[in-house]
Nucleic acid binder design. Structure first.
Lengths: 330, 330
DNA sequence: TCTAATTTGTGCGTATGTATG
DNA sequence: GCATACATACGCACAAATTAG
């Protein structure tokens, strides 16, 4: 079933892969059948176990065969053209992901499968998910979010298969990435909005340490200090007396809804009495209350750039552009 | 009591352990009960005696069971803290999932891990995901969406571990479920809105056959016929001249945005010239254009009920409630 | 009391994949 | 490519305790 030409340009492990693929296409191997064991192949063809292993591993990550410890390798799939499987680790499921994810899939080559996981800002889960899925995927796209020491887990993956998404950490600089520069972006976008911000007495960042990137808070504070603005960073809207002349930066939509309702309850007028800058643009913000001003990265572009990087196998670092979208709420 | 999946990644001895743990947690095995003998298990499931022995030994060292030579194994301890893994298969990632998913996690017992997959309305992917993950999870929660013949794949899973979510098919009635009755719901909610609908000349359902449930279209047509309304079902907004007097039912948010923009472009007035009923409520619809009227199931409740069903091991069918939320757009 | 069947417990050997250096 | 340790799975032989007849 397996034929190896000793002195030819093509690597032996690729010859093994081709042999097995042919056997599946020709029907010699059917779904559920066992492959010859690593030992028997390496003995019969006088190859190193590692060479055979490399071949079998690639067939595994492509989803064509499956390995069972203590038993052997089994054919999973008749279709040999399933080229790649991608492991995509998000922080949490929220509506910002919708654009990113659909744009990523849209621009990805066909018959690539993407499996999606969520770590929920929990390091144990983050680490467990990476370790459990090591070896099963061709590419690992990871959103480290604001977790610490993510490199401990990530470094256990094959370096050339890892991509970092959204937040960049200093220990992860060795990996290709599509990321946002939160500190820079918030400063430059708030500066663009400065004339409008100056209408207000005080600028307030609603900041949940466990979910938002630190760069956002740092950039915010730098901006406020360099422009001598009265400012505050608060963790929640609870017990906050809504004062005329406040402008809020709000990174999540639940609080956005809450604050707009509060504003209406108190008969305050958006953009006159209270200002709102929302973080991360989603579909309907264009229409809410005549339009919510947002600072947002272009999630569609982020997904597209990530897909292109995977398609072309380029290993680069791309800072995703970030824009201020001025609307009625400021 | 013991279920073993032959060709799967999870080792057989671990499957035996999990089976027995589940039997204890679910009450099938009580304190003092005898386990089936090593021989009977190894014969019944065609396993090596040693494999079964390995599993029973681990249960013994964990203090869950006790062995008596010449007699058998007996359950010592009711309290088994099993960290469960749940397989959750969604159709696609969209913002409606956010509430459902977060509410599900919130009400689930702690240290349960949920892995999420998406089939994208693709049967091959649906089937592959189920087969590849068979045996690796304690529970399988599956959104069959509008795919046909989903039971072929689903029936290969252990029956008592399967839960159906959102859409119910006749071949899946044997499984517990939290579902919507789309046909009934759209009829009753449109009837509630009938006085307002009668303001308009024509009612139009925007219906993407590949994504939306068939019951929605069937219910819509029944409603229109029984109330003698001029109606239409269209697949896309392209080439649609927006006519005064039309009321639209719009199941997805991209088209909702498109139509509202079109309405504004043409200087038509929402709820006077054109009506909108949106399907599936999300956070910001309350605020868009003074409020968008929606027909929606309560996704928070759906997640909660699903979590409760898993927590209590009840195997029932729950029709999730569905409501008309009247707002400015109708 | 003897016997046969069943059960747990132990030891040894072989084959497979996995991980590391 | 090689060597080594480890995890999983299967099979066989034999000992010791228990139970049913």
């Amino acid at each position: 079933m397996i034929s190896i030409q000793q002195k030819t340009g093509t690597p032996k492990y690729k010859q093994i892969i081709a042999s097995i693929e042919n056997a599946i296409v020709s029907g010699t191997l059917k779904k559920g059948d066992a492959l010859p064991s690593i030992n028997s192949v390496s003995m019969a063809h006088k190859l190193s176990r590692d060479t055979v292993l490399m071949a079998f591993n690639e067939l595994k990550t492509r989803g064509i065969v499956q390995s069972i410890v203590g038993k052997g390798y089994y054919v999973l799939n008749d279709q040999v053209d399933v080229t790649q499987k991608i492991f995509l680790l998000f922080d949490e499921l929220n509506s910002f992901k919708e654009d990113l994810y659909s744009s990523f899939l849209k621009h990805l080559d066909k018959n690539i499968r993407v499996d999606t996981f969520f770590h929920h800002f929990n390091y144990d889960m983050f680490s467990k998910l990476i370790h459990e899925n090591r070896g099963a995927y061709n590419q690992y796209i990871i959103m480290p979010a604001n977790l610490k020491n993510t490199h401990v887990a990530i470094d256990s993956l094959p370096k050339e298969r890892v991509y970092i998404l959204d937040q960049m950490h200093s220990e992860l600089l060795k990996y290709p990435a599509v990321y946002q520069n939160f500190e820079k972006d918030i400063i430059s976008n708030l500066n663009k909005a400065l004339p409008l911000i100056k209408k207000y007495n005080r600028i307030i960042l609603l900041f949940d340490e466990s979910r938002q990137p630190e760069g956002m808070r740092i950039g915010f504070e730098k901006f406020c200090i360099s422009n001598v603005l009265e400012h505050a960073v608060i963790a929640s809207l609870e017990n906050l007396p809504l004062a005329k002349g406040d402008v809020f930066i709000i990174p999540d939509d639940k609080n956005l809804l809450r604050i707009i309702k509060k504003i209406k309850e108190k008969n305050l007028v958006l953009s006159q009495d209270i200002g709102i800058i929302s973080y991360n643009d989603t579909l309907l913000k264009e229409l809410v209350e005549g339009g919510i001003t947002t600072i947002s990265t272009d999630f569609n572009k982020m997904g597209e750039q990530l897909a292109n990087m995977i398609n072309t196998k380029e290993q680069v670092k791309i800072e995703n552009s970030n824009a201020l979208i001025l609307r009625n709420s400021l």
